[in-house]
Simulated assay, not measured.
Amino acid sequence: MLIRVEIPVDAAGIDNLLRKAFGRDDEADLVQRLREDGLLTLGVVATDDEGGVVGYAAFTPVDVQGEDRQWVGLGPLAVEESLRRQGLGEKLVYEGLDSLNEFGYAAVVVLGAPEYYGRFGFKPAAQFNLHCRWPDSAEAFQLYVLANNALEGANGLVEYPPHFNHN
C-alpha cells in the first residue's frame, strides 16, 4: 500500500473509486469538474500493489467571508469498501494535513461526522463563529488549524467553490 500525492495517471482510478464508494456519480463528477478548473489544491491517493487507486482524499480552496486566507476544504474522502475500517482513511487525512502544512496552508475545514474527524483534531467550526452555506450543518462543519494565525480576523461564512452547489 502506497500513500502519495495524486498524479495525472490516477484520474481514471480516482473516478472509478468515487463512483463505487458512493454508489452514485455526484462525487466523481465533482472531482472531475474541480480538476478541470484547476481547483484541486491537493489530492492524496492510496494505491495497491498493482497501482490501482483504493483510497482518495481531495482538498479544495475555500474562502472566508469572500477572502482567500489559504484555507482548504477536505472532501470527498473515499476508501474501497473491502479496505474500510482499517485506518486507511486516517492515513489519507494525515498525509493531506502534513502536505498542506508543508505547503503553508492555514486551515482545513470539513463537512463530516464529528466522531470521525474529531479524532484528527478537527473542532466544531461554530466554536470559532464560522459556518458554511448548508442548513443544519453546524455540528458536521469542522475546522483544523494548521497555522498559528489562521483564525485572526476569520469568522462568518466559509465558501466552497460553486462546483459544490451542484450536489
Rank of each mutant, 00 (worst) to 15 (best):
F164S: 07
R85Q: 15
R24M: 12
V44E: 05
L100Q: 05
L77M: 11
V109M: 02
A140S: 10
G96N: 01
D26G: 15
K20M: 14
E90W: 10
L17G: 01
G52V: 12
A113L: 15
D68Y: 12
A57R: 03
E50N: 14
E80K: 09
Q86R: 12
A126Q: 11
F122D: 00
A28K: 05
L17M: 03
V110W: 03
P124H: 08
Q32V: 09
D98Q: 11
L40H: 01
M1I: 05
E6G: 10
L88K: 00
N101E: 13
V64Q: 05
H131K: 13
V108L: 04
P135Y: 03
E6I: 10
S82Y: 09
G153A: 08
G75E: 02
A126F: 12
E36G: 13
V53M: 06
A107L: 06
L151F: 07
G87R: 05
D49Y: 10
L83V: 07
I7Y: 13
G112M: 05
K91G: 08
L100T: 03
L130T: 08
Y116A: 09
L130W: 07
G87T: 04
E80Q: 04
E102G: 08
N167W: 00
D136V: 12
G73S: 10
R133H: 14
A140K: 04
V54M: 05
A140Y: 11
N155M: 15
L146Y: 04
L39S: 10
N167H: 04
D48Q: 06
R133E: 13
S82H: 07
G87S: 07
Y117L: 05
S82G: 11
Y144V: 04
W134V: 15
R84E: 11
A78V: 05
P8K: 08
R133A: 15
A125S: 09
T41V: 14
D49G: 14
K20A: 13
R19E: 00
K20N: 15
A150E: 04
G75F: 05
G156N: 09
L146T: 06
E36A: 15
V108K: 03
G75I: 05
V93Q: 07
R133P: 15
S99N: 14
P124E: 04
V109C: 01
Q70S: 15
R35P: 08
A147H: 13
N165D: 13
L39C: 10
L100D: 00
Q142D: 04
G51S: 09
V79H: 00
L74S: 00
K123G: 08
E81R: 14
G153H: 00
V72A: 04
A107V: 09
L143M: 01
L42W: 04
A150F: 06
V45M: 03
Y56T: 02
L97A: 02
G87D: 06
A21T: 05
A106E: 03
L30I: 00
